[in-house]
Design a protein around this nucleic acid. Structure first.
Lengths: 344, 344
DNA sequence: TTGTATGCGTTATCAT
DNA sequence: ATGATAACGCATACAA
């Protein structure tokens, strides 16, 4: 009789619904109902069952539950990269932290996946039918996003917006952030020779920051000092390299607006290596407010993006979409804040 | 007949084993065997089935597979904390990155969980029977570790060792790292007045670093300058506070060895605020080689711990334990390296 | 070499 | 108010 556990085994097995049912002399249906608060069970019965379940330390098997309900309670956190840093990335990490907190609060779990092309995304690297939804943080090609729509997997896209009816997009207000940095530099500090260091101008966030850079020149009627300097990656070393190139020009800027803190920190380093003072000779501003920004010397002026809030909003929106599949997507903007420190 | 899919539905359902079976006129067992390379199927049949599966873009449902095999292919990454930073933590993040890479390589997935007490760990915060094993990174109470053993869940513990037969422990060689920092300070730089800033001396990693600090004094026959300064947390602010207290003593040290880079960076900041020079007046060394350590001014001398390697080793060992449940636990030591930069 | 039947632990449907 | 039973999609022991 397979329903009777083999008690010769020394190892204690997890308690199942049917174990409780047997001990209580009821069917597993009743136990199931009692435990999930269905009204279709006598209060007295429920009380006894819950007591027993508690006593036996019963925990439902989440896999079986997922099978039956077609909901796993798992959210995929996707990073479109083929090598680290994944979560150690200064942006992804805090976003994921917010997501973890929010997910836990709503009884969801987060599973990680890194893939660098469409194939991988929906192949062995990915828990196909086991996630209720996904959030993607890095810069995915549009086709990937479309593919999610096709497969009807609820999706939240962070820091990127493409044409889509169903998906939700969460973005930091890059235009507002970059504008306030520029206004601080121009209006409060009187700079007119500001150079911009950027990375991939195809990335929406970065192109918007650059646009704000240009627009603020127009608004305050000052000529653009130079073409933007484009780093290959947004790394400390690249920040150094870019700044060294800038320092070799005859006409030096009085301020640098880097599209990320990491680049800004590199730039600052290069300036100081040259024996120049930050901010007296050249002011430096970044964007993101990464941990190192507050610990640098001088401490870096930057835009604080509430990355945790981005993660929380993403999970919240995702769970809404999971609950109501008819819900249409939308664009959620997260605020940011100018943090004036010592570098400007 | 329930086996026939309702084709009135516009939405395309995922392909199942039985769908392929029907189209091929065989049973789903044969399809299952063919797909997983069982020898119990004619080569010709297998070829046809695999072709069809490929054509229909079949992907096994991982939940169902997990139910049937009792293996989910999911590894839990546990952090014993009740608030962020979780993965944004300067140590956990890179460890997780290594784990992600290694897990992907071996066809596993990683699910995240944060809990701050035993209850939570095995309660709603945790995918009970859905993980094949777990790795824990922060400083868990021993009871939690024992509980895993009791439940026969393969476990790898990082940076902490307790008495246990089954579990595997992965540790950075703290003694070696801290000793090399101290020898650098004493032998190469000639310091004799070295103060130590630490956090929780109950944490194995930290207590070992402190022990090395003491031992090196003995070995080089110099008196210990002072009691260690104990920060409440390992934060930049606490580093500043501790250093300020140190700077208020009449007798100043000529070097500071902080148990973490974050504390060291704070200490450096406090020293510079006081108008003193690092390293001329007071040298500063940290431990961990976090990202900010290379970007500080002056750049921080520290111990580089290959945190990615820790994560990779953890996953590798975990998967071995999962495959061979008889395997006994062991202790794996990861090497580290002295990085001499400008702060000493 | 292939098919049939059963189990995995739930939830959900249909009886009673 | 409760029980019996069928899904969920796969793997596998047992038959043929």
């Amino acid at each position: 009789m397979s329903l009777l556990r083999d008690f010769h085994e020394e190892m204690e097995m997890p308690v199942r619904l049917i174990d409780i049912a047997h001990l209580m002399g009821v069917s597993k249906s009743t136990v199931s109902r009692a435990l999930q608060g269905s009204p279709r069970v006598k209060e007295e019965t429920r009380r006894l069952i819950m007591e027993k379940a508690r006593e036996m330390n019963y925990r439902p098997n989440s896999l079986a539950k997922a099978m039956a309900t077609k909901k796993s309670g798992i959210i995929g956190f996707l990073m479109y990269r083929k090598s680290p840093p994944y979560v150690a990335h200064t942006f992804f990490g805090p976003v994921l932290d917010g997501a973890i907190a929010q997910a836990a609060e709503q009884g969801y779990h987060i599973i990680l996946a890194a893939a660098d092309d469409i194939e991988n995304t929906f192949d062995e690297y990915f828990i196909q039918d086991s996630i209720d939804g996904a959030m993607i943080v890095s810069f995915y090609p549009n086709e990937v996003i479309k593919e999610f729509e096709k497969r009807k997997i609820p999706l939240v896209v962070i820091n990127n917006v493409v044409d889509s009816k169903k998906n939700t997009f969460i973005i930091d207000d890059n235009y507002r952030g970059a504008s306030s940095i520029m206004e601080h530099l121009i209006k409060e500090r009187g700079h007119t020779k500001i150079v911009h260091i950027n990375e991939d101008l195809n990335h929406p966030s970065f192109s918007i920051r650059y646009r704000a850079y240009l627009d603020m020149h127009k608004r305050y009627n000052i000529p653009v000092f130079s073409e933007p300097y484009r780093a290959k990656h947004t790394t400390f070393q690249e920040g150094i390299s870019m700044m060294q190139r800038i320092l070799h020009q005859r006409d030096l800027p009085t301020a640098v607006f880097a599209a990320t803190d990491t680049l800004a920190l590199g730039a600052m380093h290069a300036i100081q290596q040259e024996g120049l003072n930050v901010p007296k000779d050249i002011a430096v501003a970044g964007y993101d407010d990464i941990e190192a920004a507050a610990m640098s010397n001088p401490a870096l002026t930057t835009i604080a993006v509430d990355r945790g809030e981005i993660g929380r909003a993403a999970v919240q929106s995702l769970i809404q979409q999971i609950a109501d599949s008819e819900k249409t997507g939308r664009i959620i903007t997260i605020n940011n804040q100018l943090i004036i420190r010592e570098s400007t």
